[in-house]
Design a protein around this nucleic acid. Sequence first.
DNA 1: ACGGTTGTTTGACCTGCGTCAACCCTTCAC
DNA 2: GTGAAGGGTTGACGCAGGTCAAACAACCGT
Lengths: 261, 261
Amino acid sequence: MPSDRALKTPNATNNTPAPKELSLAVIKTACSNCNLRELCLPLGLTDDEMERLDELISVRRRVRRGDSLYRAGQPFEYIYAIRSGFFKTDVLLEDGRDQVTGFQMAGELLGMDGICAECHTCNAVALEDSEVCHIPFSRLEKLSREIQTLQHHFHQVMSREIVRDHGLMTLLGMMCVEERIAAFLLNLSQRFTARGFSPAEFNLRMTREEIGSYLGLKLETVSRAFSRFQEEKLINVQQKHIHILDINGLKQIMSRHSQRA
Amino acid sequence: MPSDRALKTPNATNNTPAPKELSLAVIKTACSNCNLRELCLPLGLTDDEMERLDELISVRRRVRRGDSLYRAGQPFEYIYAIRSGFFKTDVLLEDGRDQVTGFQMAGELLGMDGICAECHTCNAVALEDSEVCHIPFSRLEKLSREIQTLQHHFHQVMSREIVRDHGLMTLLGMMCVEERIAAFLLNLSQRFTARGFSPAEFNLRMTREEIGSYLGLKLETVSRAFSRFQEEKLINVQQKHIHILDINGLKQIMSRHSQRA
DNA sequence: ACGGTTGTTTGACCTGCGTCAACCCTTCAC
DNA sequence: GTGAAGGGTTGACGCAGGTCAAACAACCGT
């Protein structure tokens, strides 16, 4: 029973060369049988509470690779839960330079940047064909006034975002190229593992340029670092396919600095 | 009527050479007549709601210059509202390097990093003698389940923190020295203005090294940039005293890059 | 199968910021 | 008043990472 309020979904694919036929699928979803529920919001709810959450999140949408889920400046209405796929968020400066602020994968939430000004402050772009659940924010607030567990969990998710950002600041503020790349690979590995994928082998969904933007480096620098890691038998790279050969070696890179302190 | 729960305040000044006599003052505070209320939580509450918030925030504490309000690893219990004074937050890497993640002033909230793991993930250190209000987080959650306005405002504050962090990422990821320093000065100026102080003249509460850590630069680089700005008649610097002579000049620096794109 | 587009790698060179060091100023304890 | 300590400024120099360029590999639409 797709509810009609779902049809109010703003066309988040504007500003992109969208096909005539919009990729907007209104499909009944249920958190109660979503296999990502530990990663997303509904943690430790009773059956009754879960049912009420199901009602809230009654629509999901497909976002095609390259399309925007939302763009900076658009009015904020929903928090999005990634059901499958892969996204990047980035902010653009007036002069055209842009900074990737994060890569998000299945089970993670998107859109919390929009709460403060009731309008999004960054762009969320799908790096592969993806599916997201729409969570009307005002209704999420309402429900979290009624369900303490949900409220607390949402606060934790927002707080985790803040802590994650602090981690990226330390990376950008004081790590050298090799540390940044190692941290990046270890982070991806750990997140893939949490989703039941191989910790050692995965495909990058983003370009060298996007990695560089995220890590505060130029694409050539990223490429060179990959090559160097390969020479040192830490990883195997073939285009977007990464095989981590020596995960401890990568971890050691992160702590190398202490030796010369 | 200082409530006894307030006495459970953890000794946040440990790890620092604290005087025998703890600077813990239990004083009745009232949001209802605090002159910072637009900046802090209680925005647009009814008299009745305000009274209930007053009950919640029943204690404030003095933090001496150099002392920690909380440290990474300590259990999370309170959100803190800065009543007066100036703080920095920083995260330490195992090897001793540290990154300043923010400077906070009167009316701003501290401690939201602790929600996600129920334990703080950074240090908050007073850069001058300060006063903070303790806000027991579980009680804030309870109250915000009852007062929609409060709930929404708190979400906005957390979201603003995320957006602020994104701004720092773009600074760290793609700005050159002059842009970073200009952005830093403009940000301080704007925040002092919002508090009724001069936009053009203020005293820095932090050292060159702390500024550098925040901006991803070395202290010498910060010092040189200040000197260069002075030569260019953009500012006057005398130790910690800053006088902005040409605020538009500083703003132009921020947009200079577009000229060569 | 083919040509164009987009992404990646690698090399040669350059420069902005870091490093190291000397010196100065301010503050504070005694 | 004096000395020590902490913070700030300035100069000389080096290098990590950026820039520019060329060639190559993968992908996509037709």
